[in-house]
Nucleic acid binder design. Structure first.
Lengths: 252, 252
DNA sequence: ACCCCTGATGTTAAATTATAACACAATCAT
DNA sequence: ATGATTGTGTTATAATTTAACATCAGGGGT
């Protein structure tokens, strides 16, 4: 029973919400009344809210609230989760890592449950997520908060970066093409990204394949500036080959 | 209609949740179908989640989640809301204000819906709350994020403060006594508070009466350092008199 | 071993709530 | 003026939740 509830919990956390009919299909031997009671328990535990016909993850709701400015949260959720899980494999303990702002990176942050890490981030959301990890030391760069992408930027943020060292930077990109490289829509944010990439020993870009072929006004990195690109399996093979020629590792 | 939805929104924000029957009683001339549709809009706006029989405020849910480690949220909620509303009266538009971290200040932040303001804060939570106000420019001081009080502190945070000007600082205190003044439990956080108070033209402390008589290790302000104290009506009259002799204004 | 208790689960009927479809009035730009 | 749009109310229908009861398995205590 404990186990079934844990399973439901995980399902909700990953999908954001669940319908009762879904759960019935997922757990055939269990009556709907029991599933209802399980959701009730999850509600009492503060994990989810029950809605008509199911339940929603409270963590997700907070993120939706915070990221309403663009309906990016639930979009490509499965891909983002998959990418985040792969990125997890690149992290060693006791390192200094930088987490860029963005939903994919947020997914990664959620998986950093108990690793001993020094985390610096440009996102207040991600900072709050990381602070739940009792073994992490969390820093945020501060500065002006952009309504658009909920990230900090500006001069003071740049100065902050001068005072820290970064082993691995996990970066997000809004667009990518071989010609223009990794691009973003906000000048100040891209200045931050550039500085982070300069300072980091290793740069990993997390990007789902939907960003491919899109060009945004500001380039923050050329393909040659990064070490690894992590994406989903819809990522075209020929681009992987092109990147590979430059010694880049691409993980799908 | 816009007005009715705003009213419902405020009601939800204050109470955390509503039942449809409550709304029907509250707004007699309106059909339940319309109220349902209003809740639906609030859900689309990211303000609330609809539950069976009503809706819950997403902000409340997030706070429950984020502050599970310390059950401070719902404690003295009524007092905190009352204090925040009084503080609202001290704010003029087009000013630079500082918002300290803390649940009472968070309540205030939630009321800053559309005022044109320059907001600087030491709390990632409050920054995220304030960014919802389309007319606010939001800055956060950045630095090391404390797990204890979810606030930024450290050298870089102090440096940040040197570069900004503050008209009014809204500060929170964990303890107060006439002898030791306003106190807090974290050294770094109190250093930040001290610097803010130095820089601010006007200092307003928001503190519910439960903090009275408590002394925490670090004093960040003596009674003489602040301009106004806002508290609830359980605040003892003789202390108000003592503060009044120093020219302090106390609002209950 | 026995019995009674407890807690988890399943089953059903009743109550509650949500939805969909339609109708109507007010507003607004062409 | 008119057609479109939007907000609203009304109803019937559908869906979901609740409550109450029945069942079953395990867990002490005598």
């Amino acid at each position: 029973m404990q186990e079934r509830i844990a399973q439901i919990k995980q399902y909700i956390q990953e999908k954001g919400e669940v319908k009762l009919t879904e759960l019935e299909a997922l757990l055939p031997g269990v009556s709907s009344m029991t599933l209802r009671r399980d959701l009730q328990k999850l509600e009492e535990m503060g994990v989810a809210v029950r809605t008509k016909g199911g339940a929603k993850s409270i963590s997700h709701l907070s993120r939706i609230k915070e990221e309403l400015y663009a309906t990016r949260t639930l979009e490509n959720m499965a891909e983002k989760t998959a990418i985040a899980k792969k990125a997890l494999g690149c992290i060693e303990e006791d390192r200094s890592i930088f987490l860029d702002s963005g939903t994919t990176v947020m997914c990664l942050a959620q998986f950093l449950d108990s690793q001993k890490l020094f985390i610096t981030t440009s996102s207040p959301n991600i900072a709050l997520e990381c602070i739940k990890n009792p073994n992490a030391t969390v820093n945020a760069i501060g500065g002006s908060l952009s309504r658009e992408n909920l990230s900090f930027s500006g001069i003071t943020a740049l100065n902050f970066l001068d005072n820290i060292n970064i082993d691995i930077a996990f970066m997000a990109a809004s667009g990518f093409s071989m010609k223009n490289g990794f691009t973003g829509g906000d000048f100040n944010e891209c200045e931050i990204k550039k500085r982070v990439i300069e300072k980091a020993s290793k740069v990993i870009v997390l990007m789902d394949s939907s960003k491919l072929g899109k060009n945004l006004p500001f380039t923050f990195a050329k393909p040659g500036d990064i070490d690894t690109l992590i994406s989903d399996d819809r990522f075209p093979k020929d681009i992987i080959r092109q990147l590979g020629r430059g010694g880049k590792r691409t993980v799908l």
